[in-house]
Design a protein around this nucleic acid. Structure first.
Lengths: 354, 354
DNA sequence: CTACGCTAGGAAAGAGTTTTCCCAGTGGCC
DNA sequence: GGCCACTGGGAAAACTCTTTCCTAGCGTAG
């Protein structure tokens, strides 16, 4: 209660028992303690306002209650939704969540992982698409192995291929489903905001979409695939580039929702109407989406649930020898941003608009 | 490198020096160590892959590198923006951020604060409006005092009145500025989505708006002030209630942006156009806002910067005896959701629409 | 040449827990 | 009644660092 800390030793003394007994009462060990002493200790702890020193506990037990969560950018609704799922799970269990934001830097990711290792974190959840850069993947995999060797558990979201359990969306199928849906709606010519070339998630969605087009006997013009940053501004900028050149497409597919959001803004600025002049579809179903006008057609992923399941993998399930992969199937959600193509639209989009 | 951990003792032995010397080399103490030994130790540490045990360090130093961040809901863009500012600051300094989400429960807030205390966290940043419930404020204040007594630092965002430094928006002035702006635009009758009655932030914004109306000789009809949850769905639901009764207002002010977003959705569902039938304005300028159609008129707060400044207060500045308050002035940003009222609108909104 | 101050290094004492090991007491069984 | 198993309690080691205190060695001044 005074200025300093209350230690377990003080509690023990106050209760007239040994340190060992006090410890056994406080943290419910396997050993029995008589009710009489038990009551004395809890009463003393209460009275003195005892709060265990977490570092001392971690040191003695060699295991902490820290759980790491690594995301690229916590202000991105995709990540903050997943984060909400992870926090829900960890807080229910009285664990402490450590948030690391990596800004898509593999180096920073490694550094944070090392910090978590230094803290003897119990588990870590890594969120975000891995890149196709083999060197940084190798180093990340090495850090993960070190972490696991120390008894830490690791789970990934959307990062299949690392030496850890993973929850991952079926990007290929989701994108293919969406493509088939749009084809059924009457679209024949598509443009794609394909995101960065070195991100697996982006690639898989592009591939899935592409293969469904091929399956329907449709071609995807080379100039209709635009690469750019995986962000809202990346989507905006990619769309400007696409429209500056001109596209014959009647439907624009952005490989994630934040890019689609940027695309809609760009089209609005260019004076094009969605979906009358051009249909737009995205992927992920981030929560902010339903308030756009027109509301965005997309492939719904249960983001919060994915975070929760990753936390579950990392905290509950037994490690297992080889990495397990839980695949989450996305579901096409049709909203107002896509509609059957109009003849007028074709002509309009062919002439370079910007 | 083997299965176990490498301890500093092993490094010292490998380098042929004492534990004390090894420690001094690794953590750059005030004491000098000869270059020769210094090199030997760093080489050994490198070779053995030494990583300091953070818990042992915390225990020995009685001070950790943990910084807490408490928000109500990390998936809310208001909080995730502020969180981004805080993480930027802490990561630059190599500190570890612990994220706690409180779901607006004072009890949970207290529990997390105790956990941080147990971990000897260096500082904590509390984000979110404090309530007008004196009892829970008192308990929170007590927890903060305990935390500070242990040498921890505390800073708040938007929670003036607690025994800690605070970064807070000038809600009253911001709302008044907005009101004057809307009056200048020609509006005379307003409706307000006032949020919960027990949240200071909501109250101050309501008061500021109200007082500017009074200053202009305008009255605010009682039935035009609707209370409800401080969330998007709260805004949606409040708007439905407001419109069911019918309002003579030409402009709707929601005391925060997420509520305004819900309001726009409700109006859309009711078949009302913004701003032709009804103008809508919010407060905060959360980043997702610019992608709404029409884009929302609001009072801009520099959210990320506020998070950063709070982190700065908690980590850099000297504690000081009494709590300092940094007031951040908001700036009215006019976008398309507000426009001069049309005569048609008046008639329309008077008749109960829903 | 001795005394003194300074420096670099090491031994050891913490920091606050958990857990192992030991001991005394009790009850049951032959 | 003696032996054994079992129980509840305490002493002390262990966990991995940091930091204080001590000492040996060196240079310098008187």
């Amino acid at each position: 209660m005074e200025s300093g800390y209350v230690t377990l030793e003080q509690v023990a003394e106050h209760a007239g028992v040994s340190l060992a007994t006090a410890s056994r009462v406080i943290n419910g060990s396997t050993r029995q303690v008589s009710q009489r002493l038990r009551d004395k200790v809890t009463a003393s702890a209460q009275e003195l306002g005892y709060l265990a020193n977490a570092s001392a506990q971690t040191l003695a037990r060699n295991s902490s209650s820290l759980v790491g969560l690594l995301v690229h950018d916590i202000a991105d609704p995709y990540f903050s939704s997943i984060a909400a799922g992870v926090t829900r799970h960890t807080e229910e269990r009285g664990l402490v969540l450590v948030l690391g934001t990596t800004s898509r830097s593999a180096q920073k990711e490694g550094r944070i992982l090392a910090t978590l290792r230094a803290h003897r974190a119990r588990a870590v959840v890594l969120v975000g698409s891995r890149s196709t850069d083999d060197e940084s993947n190798r180093r990340l995999a090495e850090e993960i192995r070190l972490f696991r060797r120390q008894g830490g558990r690791v789970a990934c979201v959307s990062q299949e291929g690392l030496p850890a359990d993973t929850v991952t969306p079926d990007n290929h199928t989701g994108a293919a489903d969406l493509a088939r849906h749009l084809i059924a709606q009457g679209h024949r010519e598509f443009a794609i905001l394909a995101g960065p070339t070195d991100l697996w998630t982006a690639r898989e969605r592009l591939d899935g979409f592409h293969s469904a087009l091929s399956g329907a006997g449709l071609e995807l013009a080379h100039h209709n695939v635009v690469h750019g940053a995986f962000t809202r501004d990346g989507g905006y900028e990619s769309t400007r580039r696409l429209m500056a050149v001109g596209t014959g497409a009647t439907c624009l597919f952005a490989v994630n929702d934040v890019m689609a959001t940027g695309a809609m803004a760009a089209l609005r600025d260019l004076g094009l109407r969605v979906p009358e002049d051009l249909s737009v579809a995205g992927f992920d179903d981030i929560p902010t989406l339903r308030d756009l006008t027109p509301a965005l057609t997309t492939v719904r992923l249960p983001l919060e649930e994915m975070g929760e399941r990753a936390a579950l993998l990392a905290l509950e399930e037994e490690p297992g020898e080889e990495a397990r992969v839980i695949t989450v199937r996305g579901e096409v959600v049709e909203r107002e941003s896509t509609a059957p193509p109009s003849v007028a639209a074709r002509g309009k989009n062919t002439s370079g608009t910007a």
